[in-house]
Nucleic acid binder design. Structure first.
Lengths: 347, 347
DNA sequence: TTGAAAGCGATACCAT
DNA sequence: ATGGTATCGCTTTCAA
């Protein structure tokens, strides 16, 4: 007794020609039906549709793309590992684009070199995607120019460039928000821990948040000692180390610390716990971003609408793709302070 | 004075023909160079390569795909929002596939209906991807058959099917691990909170973990009262509610609870805190998965190698794509207990 | 070693 | 309203 073959359909793959033949029409007609083009008799349309169903036919996206010059797919360049916030943005982006029947190809960037390669490849010819969103990575002028030359719409999300539509927040204002929250509670000795300005990706949010923090303090006539400002690689453990440095020298201890990202704030929280510091009684901590974990651990933080930012970027991209002029070159999202359990008046 | 046009390259896009013409060779030769095919004189190859560089040419993936029948892209179907663990798996997967020069298209699935649509579309003709990985979603026999018919390799990650290579863990063993950790600490009244077996996606890990838990308890002659076993939607807040139910009736309070996923365990932790329960003194909590947040909050949990599972799935997929026979139809990853701060001997 | 030409599977224009 | 055909940009025979 022979083994029953698993493959049900050993025949040639069904193409538009198969459908046309079977339905007794030309390929042009099938194509019209497929694309809802006008000028097809109702009776014909029905017959074709039926044949399509019988054959379980679906047009090759590849062939369609080659023919039309559009692939219905967009690229998302994301620092996947380094930024949890990027994942939440991506979520909003993918959802909105899926709803619009676009595919999203994911380009994880964790190394400087990858970043360069990806941007170069995506902008060039040969790339499959119709457009791209770049998350948290400011492109250089040359890179932008390449995209422009290629005629590919690009949206910047959490990054900015004069020639590209961007969805951002006002980091300076956000830094001010954080500092003022602490000031309002009565804190005067407020430290800052953030990302190094010399980071390989060109992230600038941390420095801007620092500026906002310094401005707010200045308004209150406060100039923090240089030792209150610690910057290092955007990493939880590095942030913990920086926090510990605050306790070395004969430095007067801060009563509060503003950490420029939740990821780093989480590290600070851990380090503070390790020191036996009661939070918020002995030390207030405020983060920035409001990633999901922030809520889980009760971290007070400056909230930016991460998922919504993804949706907005998607919308701008869809606008650009449909040839509509961008509503605004620069879209700035609102910030609020999510007050939770890590901030309180100083002892 | 005229405005300087931004567009540097108003000319027709550069194709393989452009390169061929410019280099004074046929397109076939350029193609051979592009693909490292043998039989090209070194001198010719150099000239072509140079021309390619001058023109900043890159072959159209679309055209190449249409011609070869392969697109160098694979689909990843992921319950993005419902499972944080899925993101970590995806990370490993994307990394490995990027290294192998494949594109990954992301298919977020949050609704039952989306799940069905996506699987159907990806298996059918017309789909761009050469293969697919499906994360945490067990496909039906019909769905599997469609993939098989289409000749598209599929790997299941955190899911299982007799006809498909799968990367999984032994959930029953894992449940046992969790229970035995608590038993070893001296606990006897151990509750269980998990995902509902009737979930719309067909996730089965929770029931299996429950089985392992029950078996381990039975080995110690313990049969937990039915009220100790709570199941509901896989959601943090739902888990918190289920936990609260443990305190209703005249039920003898458990000294420990095994929660079938970290996401749910985080909810339980919150609910316990809200009740003023000191953890682990008054109550031990152990989760499952070891997502990143688990470490941050100090949750004791059963650890499965999430990112590595993604890498393994990628490897299996690459094997399948290169026609090598799958090394094993079923790959089972190791589990360990990450002991942190939420478990201790009962008071 | 190389060039020419036939597909790959769609779309879109041109007749009819 | 519909069929036929050129076209998209590449790979891959087939000759030379």
């Amino acid at each position: 007794m022979e083994a029953v073959p698993i493959v049900t359909n050993p025949s040639r793959p069904v193409t538009i020609a198969t459908v046309a033949r079977r339905a007794g029409v030309g390929v042009g007609t099938v194509s019209r039906v497929l694309n809802g083009a006008p000028g097809v008799a109702e009776k014909t349309r029905t017959r074709v549709l039926e044949t399509i169903r019988e054959l379980d036919y679906a047009p090759s996206q590849l062939a369609r793309g080659l023919s039309t010059g559009r692939s219905s797919s967009v690229a998302a360049v994301v620092p996947f590992l380094t930024h949890p916030s990027a994942v939440e943005r991506l979520r909003g982006f993918v959802r909105a684009l899926t709803a619009a029947r676009y595919d999203v190809t994911l380009h994880d960037v964790e190394l400087r070199e990858q970043r360069d390669d990806r941007l170069r490849a995506l902008a060039g010819p040969g790339s499959t995607s119709d457009a791209a969103v770049i998350v948290s990575l400011p492109p250089t002028d040359d890179e932008v120019q390449r995209f422009l030359d290629a005629g590919k719409p690009v949206i910047l999300l959490d990054a900015q460039h004069p020639l590209l539509p961007s969805v951002v927040i006002d980091d300076v204002a956000g830094g001010g928000l954080a500092a003022r929250h602490l000031l309002a509670l009565g804190h005067r000795r407020i430290a800052f821990i953030g990302d190094t300005p010399a980071n390989p990706y060109g992230f600038t949010s941390s420095v801007n948040r620092r500026t906002g923090y310094l401005d707010a303090l200045a308004e209150h006539g406060i100039t923090p000692p240089p030792a209150y400002i610690k910057e290092g690689e955007h990493d939880r453990l590095v942030a913990a180390r920086l926090f510990d440095e605050l306790f070395q020298d004969g430095l007067e201890r801060p009563t509060a610390v503003f950490v420029a990202s939740d990821t780093q704030a989480l590290g600070v929280l851990g380090a503070a716990r390790a020191r036996g510091l009661r939070i918020p009684d002995q030390l207030s901590v405020i983060g920035f971003d409001d990633i999901e974990t922030a809520e889980l651990v009760g971290l007070t933080t400056v909230r930016q609408p991460l998922e919504e930012s993804g949706r907005r970027a998607a919308q701008l991209l869809l606008d650009a793709l449909s040839g509509r002029p961008p509503e605004a070159a620069l879209e700035t999202l609102d910030l609020t302070v999510s007050v939770r359990q890590t901030t309180a008046p100083p002892a």
